[in-house]
Every structure is written in C-alpha cells, then in structure tokens.
C-alpha cells in the first residue's frame, strides 16, 4: 500500500513536470494540436467516401464505422499518452539511457513510462472523441450505467493491449542492440486493423489477430458486441489487456538482464 502511494505520488509529480515542460515550449504543442486531429479527421473522411460509394463495409454502415473508428482512435490516444516511449525503447537501449532508471529505487518499466508523460497524446483524443460521439449518435447508443462501464473497461483494455505490444516489440532491442524503430510500421498496422471491421480481412489474418496478436480485441470485437447490446467483448478486452501487459512486463524484465549500458 505504502509502495502504491509512493508510485502514485511520483506519477503525479511527473504529470506536473510534463505540464511545465509543455508550457516551456508552447509552440510545439500548438503544432501537434493542429496536425494530429487533421490526420485522423482526414482518415475518417476517407471512410465516409468509401461508404458513400459502396453503402457499407462488410455490413457495417456509416454510424457503426464511426463508432468503431472512435474507439480505435481514443485507445490510440491513451496509448500515446502513457506508452509512446515503447516505440523508442531501442534508442534507450543503444544509448544507455536505462542507466538512470536503474539507479533509482523504483521499477524500471514504471519509470520508463510514467516519468515522461506525453501530453501531446491528448491532441489525438480530440478527433477520437468527436468521431465516437458522432457514431454513438448515429447508432443511438444508449448511455446506460452498464454501457458506460463497458466503454471504460474497453478503453482501458485496449490501451493495455497496445502498450503491451509496444513493450514486447521494444524489448527485442535488448538482444538485437539495434535502434529498431518500429513506430511508423506499428502505427500503420494498428490503424489498418483497428479502424476497420476485422471481418473484411482474410480468414487466416483474422485468426492471427484474434488469438496470437490480440489486436482484434482493441476495437473490433468489443465494438461489435456493444453494438449488439452486450458488454461481454469489453470485459474480455480488459482481461486480454491485463494479460498482455503482464506478459510484456515479464518479458521486459528478462530483457533488462541483457542490458549492456553504453561505453565501458
């Protein structure tokens, strides 16, 4: 309990530091505030174009697609706020930047993520929430207590799944000793697989993205369940998120033993 209090205290202090840093470089933040929402709004406009042309994608109409797209972007935004560091783990490994974390009396993985919050991630939240709200309106989503709970569980689970996958991918750097910049690739892959119905992909790919790399549980399955009136998918998302994150943390711990710092 004492330990949890300490970790929360450290996190909150670093939230403050992140805000102070943002205020130090306001132009940087404004830049992101403009560019990030535009990127996702344009992405959504593409869907509108496709739907206008073909009516539906795999039986999903415009409202359903907005609902799905919204969940994908919101969980992406949270994963950017809390776990974006995972993309750059290779840099830290090669540059010897884990030294500092190992010298402090806190979990290394905790410090890696929670001592440098990415406030810029909030700019992704804006288009996410807008499109999601629009989708909810279109499909007449009922905001009952159960549904609110389900959405919260689902966003938490989806964020954990994304974060866990970033950690697992980044952890390979401990052995390859390379910078392994997989940011662009991951973003592209996650976008393509979470913003559209998974059912439009080949069967083999659906199986992989359901049972091996649990990307389907980020948005597709829980959204599908919610649209048909059950929160079951959201609960499963959360469970898979917790499991993915736990496995990722254990894997990271193993990787850290092979950490070689930099220089001699």
């Amino acid at each position: 309990m004492e330990r949890i209090k300490h970790y929360i205290d450290v996190s909150l202090y670093h939230v403050k530091l992140a805000v102070l840093t943002m205020l130090e470089y306001p132009a940087n933040f404004v830049g992101w505030l403009l560019s990030n929402p535009i990127q996702f709004i344009l992405g959504f406009a593409t869907i509108k174009f496709v739907v206008a042309r073909f009516g539906t994608i795999n039986g999903w109409d415009y409202g359903h697609l907005a609902f799905l797209y919204g969940i994908a972007v919101i969980s992406h935004a949270f994963s950017m706020i809390f776990f974006v560091q995972g993309w750059f783990m290779g840099e830290y490994v090669v540059g010897g930047d884990f030294d500092r974390y190992m010298l402090r009396p806190l979990s290394v993985l905790f410090q890696f993520f929670f001592t440098q919050f990415n406030i810029v991630g909030f700019t992704d939240l804006i288009p996410g929430v807008c499109v999601f709200a629009y989708g909810c309106h279109k499909v007449h989503f009922h905001w009952s207590i159960g549904n609110v709970m389900a959405v919260l569980l689902l966003i938490t689970g989806a964020t954990l799944i994304r974060g866990g996958i970033y950690i697992i991918m980044g952890t390979f750097s401990f052995w390859t000793k390379s910078r392994n910049d997989f940011a662009g690739f991951t973003q592209e892959f996650f976008d393509k697989t979470t913003m559209y119905p998974l059912s439009m992909y080949p069967r083999m790919m659906q199986i992989i993205l359901t049972y091996i790399i649990p990307i389907g549980w980020i948005s597709y399955y829980p959204a599908k369940d919610l649209l048909s009136g059950t929160g079951m998918g959201a609960v499963i998302s959360l469970v898979i998120g917790v499991v993915t994150m736990t496995l990722a943390a254990l894997f990271f711990k193993v990787g850290l033993r092979s950490y070689e710092s930099a220089g001699q």
């Binding site: 884990f98 030294d99 710092s261």
Partner: peptide
C-alpha cells in the same frame, strides 16, 4: 573502471 562502477551500482549484471 566504468564497467566496475556500473556493476556495483546495479546497472550491469
């Protein structure tokens, strides 16, 4: 030297 210091401070195994 540094390798020794890094092992003593828990950074390297």
């Amino acid at each position: 030297k540094s390798t020794t210091v890094k092992m003593m401070s828990g950074i390297l195994v």
